[in-house]
Design a protein around this nucleic acid. Structure first.
Lengths: 344, 344
DNA sequence: CATTAGCACTCGTCGGTCATGAGTGCTAAC
DNA sequence: GTTAGCACTCATGACCGACGAGTGCTAATG
C-alpha cells in the first residue's frame, strides 16, 4: 500500500489534533474540523490503511486513533511545515542573549530559560566543553599565611577557583613565580591540549616547586573533568506537570529522576549530529524512562567547531514544528553570543 | 480536662503509629501494638478526650484518629524523647564534612545531601550570609586588550568573578593599582561594612579612575546582593515523592514550585531563632503551600554569631525526634567545619 | 468510680452492574 | 470510489450493596 495525498492529509490532521487535545482522534472529528471534503466513513477507511502502515494506533478497540512513534517520525520527516517564530519572540531571544551577559555560565542559564518559556517543555543544555576553550592563565592569590586561592581563567571566563594549602615558608613572590611558570607553558593552548601536556608537565616540574605546583595542576585537572566539562543546565523542569501524559506521579518521578542525573542527560544529548536539528521520538530513544518522550536537539558552534548541545524534552505528542523553530533560532543566537564572548 | 499519664501514652502511640503507617489509627490497633494494659474501649474513651482537647482528629466519622497540628506540637514540646544518631551515622557525617572540602559552596551542598540522605525528607540550607564574611581582596586580571577578570575573595573563598570591559589604554599596572586602592580601603572589613562604606567610597574615588573602578565596585556590590547572599541549597527534592500524603500531582507541583523559588524558601527559614532547633508544624507555617508540611530548622554559628540556617521539609506526619537529631548533629559539624575554613 | 464487654451505627472501600457515548468495521447502496 | 446505516466494542461514570474498621453509648463488672 502506498501513501497518497489524502492519506497524508488525514495523518496530518490526526497528529495536529492529537497534539493539541491529547485525546484519541475519531473520524468524525477530522471530518468536522479539517474539511477534507469527504465523509467520516471515507476517513475511517483511510485511517484503517494508516493503521496497517503502522503510522497510527488505537489505544483500545474502537477508540479513536493516536499517532505511533513511527507516525511522528513520518510527520517530522515528510509532512511538517517549517515554522518561523514571531518577530516578537525573536526579538526577546536576541535581547536576552545580548543583555548584560558576559559569562558563559549565565548565558547557558538564559538559553535554557528561553527554551522552556517559549515551548513549555523542559530545556536541556550542555555548556561548552571546557576542552574546546583556551587556557588563559592561572592566578595564585595569597589570602592567609597558609592558604592561597587559585583561579583558572579560560577564554570562557573563570572556570574554577579553589583554596589551596600552602607551606608557610612560601612568599607571595614565590606564588607569583609558580603561576608564571604554569602560565608560560600553557597559555593559548586549548584545554584539551593542556590536558594532554599536563601529566608530562607535572612530572617534569613537580620536583622543583613541589606542593603548590602540584596542587595547582590538580585544580587545572579538576577543571577539565566531570562536573565542569559540559555542565548540564536544566530549565522549566516543572513544565512536565503541564502535560496530561505525565499526570501520573510515577512517571513524573521517573522523569525528574533522570533529569537530575546529569550524566544520563549528557549521554542522551551526545547522539546529536554535528549539523542541523535532531529529533528523537519515543522509543527511538535509548533510555527506557524516555519511552514517552521526544527530544529536539541541536549543536551550537564556534568557528565551525561544535561547542555544545541545546535541546528540549517533551511528550511524544509534541509541537514539533514549533520546537524545531525555537531550537534552531536559539542555536544561531547562541553561536553568535558565544563568538562575542570567547573570541577576542 | 487535664492531660494525664495514660492520655499522654495514648497520644504518643497514635502519633508513633501514624508516623510510620500514614493510616488513621484505631483503638484496637493501639491496644494490640502498644500494651498499655487496658482494653480498646478504655482507649476509645481516652481518644474521645484527646479529641476534645484538640490533639487528635477524625478525618471522617467513625474512622480512626490522626494527630492534629496541635497534637504534633504537644508531642514535640512535651512527649518526644531525644534521639541520638547511630555511631555509624555520626561517623559518615563527620567524614563527609571533613573530607576534601575546602570551599563553602561545596560544604553546603554536602550538608544538604546528608540531611536528605539520613531523613528521606527534603533538605533546605541557607549558605552563610556573605555579609558576615570579611573582605579579603579583589583581583583584576587582564585577559585581553579590552577585558579583565575581576575576582572577589572573601574569607568564605571566592565569591564572585566577572569579566569587565576595560579601556584599551589601561595597562596591567593600572589594573594592579586600581585593585590595590580598593584592597587598601576594604581589606578586613566584613562585607556588611563594605556595603555600608561602598556608596561613600564609590562617590569619592569614582572621579579618579572612573570606569574600571566603578565596574569593580559594581561587582562587589553584586556579590553582596540577592543570589549570592544566603544562597539556597536544596537536597533530595525528589524525596517528596516518597510521602503518601503527596501522592497527588497537584500537591507535588505546588511544593516543588515553592522550593524552586529561592526567595520564598529564604523567607520561610528566616523565622528560625538564634539558638536551638526550631520546629514549625503545618499551619503554624506562614506559607499557604506548606499547610501539610513541617519544617525542622536550626542556625549554625561561627564564634557565637549566626551564619546561616539548615533545615528540612517533610509532611506534618514526620519523624520529629530523628529529624531533630540529624539537624542538631549537623549544625555542630557544620559550625566546626566552617571554623576550619573561615577562621585563619 | 474506673474499666470493660456488647451492640448498634457510621462511613470509606471495593467489586459488580448498567447506561451512555464516542468510535469503529462492515455491508450495501449510490 | 464514496457514503449511509447499523451492529458492535469499550472506556467512563454513576449507582448499589457487601464488607469491615472503627466509633459512641449503655449496662454490667470489680
Amino acid at each position: 500500500m502506498q501513501m497518497n495525498d489524502r492519506k497524508q492529509k488525514v495523518l496530518w490532521a490526526i497528529i495536529h489534533d492529537y497534539v493539541s487535545t491529547a485525546e484519541p482522534v475519531g473520524s468524525r472529528t477530522i471530518a468536522r474540523k479539517y474539511n477534507l471534503g469527504v465523509s467520516p466513513a471515507t476517513i475511517r477507511n483511510e485511517m484503517s490503511d494508516l493503521e496497517e502502515l503502522g503510522l497510527i494506533e488505537q489505544p483500545y478497540t474502537s477508540s479513536g486513533r493516536i499517532p505511533s512513534d513511527y507516525g511522528y517520525r513520518y510527520f517530522v520527516d515528510c509532512l511538517m511545515e517549517r515554522k518561523v517564530l514571531a518577530a516578537e519572540e525573536l526579538r526577546i531571544m536576541q535581547q536576552t542573549m545580548s543583555d548584560r551577559l558576559q559569562e558563559v555560565d549565565y548565558l547557558m542559564q538564559q538559553a535554557s530559560a528561553i527554551i522552556s518559556q517559549l515551548t513549555n517543555y523542559t530545556a536541556v543544555v550542555l555548556g561548552p566543553q571546557v576542552g574546546k576553550t583556551t587556557f588563559q592563565q592561572i592566578q595564585l592569590l595569597p589570602i592567609m599565611p597558609t592558604k592561597a586561592v587559585a583561579v583558572i581563567i579560560t577564554s570562557a571566563g573563570v572556570v574554577e577557583s579553589k583554596i589551596l594549602d600552602i607551606p608557610e615558608s612560601l612568599t607571595p613572590e614565590d606564588l607569583q613565580q609558580v603561576s608564571a611558570v604554569i602560565n608560560e607553558s600553557l597559555r593559548g593552548l586549548t584545554m584539551n591540549q593542556v590536558r594532554a601536556s599536563l601529566s608530562h608537565e607535572l612530572a617534569e616540574t613537580l620536583k622543583k616547586q613541589k606542593q603548590v605546583l602540584s596542587q595547582s595542576l590538580e585544580i587545572i585537572d579538576e577543571a577539565l573533568h566531570a562536573d565542569n566539562d559540559e555542565r548540564v543546565y536544566l530549565g522549566g523542569t516543572l513544565n512536565i506537570f503541564k502535560q496530561p501524559e505525565f499526570k501520573d506521579v510515577d512517571k513524573i518521578q521517573t522523569l525528574l529522576g533522570i533529569l537530575e542525573q546529569h550524566h544520563t542527560v549528557r549521554e542522551l544529548l551526545h547522539h546529536t549530529p554535528e549539523r542541523g536539528v535532531n529529533i528523537t521520538i519515543g522509543t527511538e530513544n535509548k533510555h527506557e524512562g524516555f519511552r514517552n518522550c521526544s527530544m529536539v536537539t541541536a549543536t551550537y558552534h564556534l568557528d565551525g567547531e561544535v561547542l555544545g548541545v541545546i535541546g528540549l524534552v517533551g511528550p511524544t505528542r509534541m509541537e514539533y514544528s514549533r520546537s524545531v523553530a525555537v531550537i534552531e533560532s536559539l542555536t544561531e543566537n547562541l553561536s553568535f553570543a558565544l563568538k562575542r564572548i570567547l573570541n577576542r
